[in-house]
């Protein structure tokens, strides 16, 4: 069997970049089981964390299907290589190079829902590298909100290969970025099964973001609220949340919410969150609710 040569382009985090990622997945999907896939970076001079998380997951997906992903390391430009080695991605490329504690936020793979490890990553490697000044209470709140992304990925995606994430800090804008990818069934597919009828991708995403709605498959008690809490947090704190899931897209920021259909997509979900890291901007939940809990 001839190996598939996967040409990795420049990958930022705009819509056109997502389309490129979807196209990469489509090529791998079309190659079928036991495919040998060569990742060629000759035309790539930039990789955002969403692309790193996605490519890591794609390599594991190829392995899961009995294939062999091979990273053509000789085609990777030095600055990208340095970053990939530093953030721990070298392991995906089958290169024995330990990561080191630099400015990058580590790439990670989670095959199961290990909340303590993920919270440690979020608090120590993502928020707490000393590049931003966050009070412990704010760090705990942000970690809890980001966890909602992970728990949604684990609970709803049914991803056989787990969840992949990576991050970045932007010193000039004081922004933190977290990207989380899975290769599961996607939110719209879950909503369609839940409703038992065809629903457009954008309507499925709108439904999933509504308070109390959930497609969780276990019974019987009320669920949901995670995405609703996250949405509120992002909106109040001038953050930016984007979710590409199967054929549905959702964006939440301080201007509101946007839902769209996607014509070019992959089987899975890619979430990207941007947070402004100035704790004077944050509205913490300091207001003590005076009403009884029940």
């Amino acid at each position: 069997m001839m190996p598939l040569k996967l040409c990795i382009p420049l990958l930022n985090d705009k819509r056109q970049d997502f389309n490129k990622l979807a196209h990469l997945w489509q090529q791998v999907d079309a190659a079928g089981e036991k495919a040998h896939v060569h990742f060629d970076f000759s035309n790539c001079d930039f990789l955002r964390p969403n692309a790193v998380a996605f490519l890591g997951g794609l390599a594991r997906l190829i392995e899961y299907r009995g294939g062999l992903p091979q990273f053509e390391t000789g085609t990777i430009r030095q600055e990208i290589k340095t970053n990939l080695y530093q953030n721990g991605f070298a392991n995906v490329m089958r290169i024995d190079s330990p990561s080191w504690d630099g400015n990058s936020i580590p790439y990670r793979e989670d095959s199961h829902e290990d909340q303590n490890s993920i919270v440690h990553y979020l608090k120590s490697n993502w928020l707490g590298k000393g590049w931003i000044n966050v009070a412990p209470t704010l760090a705990n709140e942000i970690a809890g909100q980001m966890w909602e992304i992970y728990t949604n990925a684990f609970e709803h995606s049914q991803s056989a290969i787990g969840v992949f994430s990576c991050g970045q800090y932007f010193p000039k804008s004081h922004e933190l970025l977290l990207a989380v990818a899975d290769f599961g069934v996607g939110i719209p597919s879950n909503v369609r099964h839940h409703a038992g009828k065809p629903i457009h991708g954008k309507e499925a995403m709108r439904w999933a973001f509504a308070p109390g709605n959930t497609t969780a498959r276990e019974l019987p008690f009320p669920r949901g609220m995670g995405l609703d809490l996250l949405k509120e947090f992002i909106r109040i704190n001038h953050g930016h949340l984007e979710i590409y899931s199967k054929d549905g897209y959702a964006r939440v920021d301080s201007k509101g919410e946007v839902y769209e259909n996607l014509t070019n997509f992959f089987d899975g979900t890619l979430v990207q969150v941007r947070l402004v890291c100035d704790d004077t901007l944050y509205l913490l939940s300091n207001e003590q609710e005076s009403s009884p809990f029940f």
């Binding site: 913490l284 003590q288 609710e289 809990f293």
Partner: peptide, 16 residues
Amino acid sequence: LSSFGQRVLHRVLDNA
């Protein structure tokens, strides 16, 4: 229960 925990709990209970 921290302020954030209280907010999450209130939201969950309203939904329940």
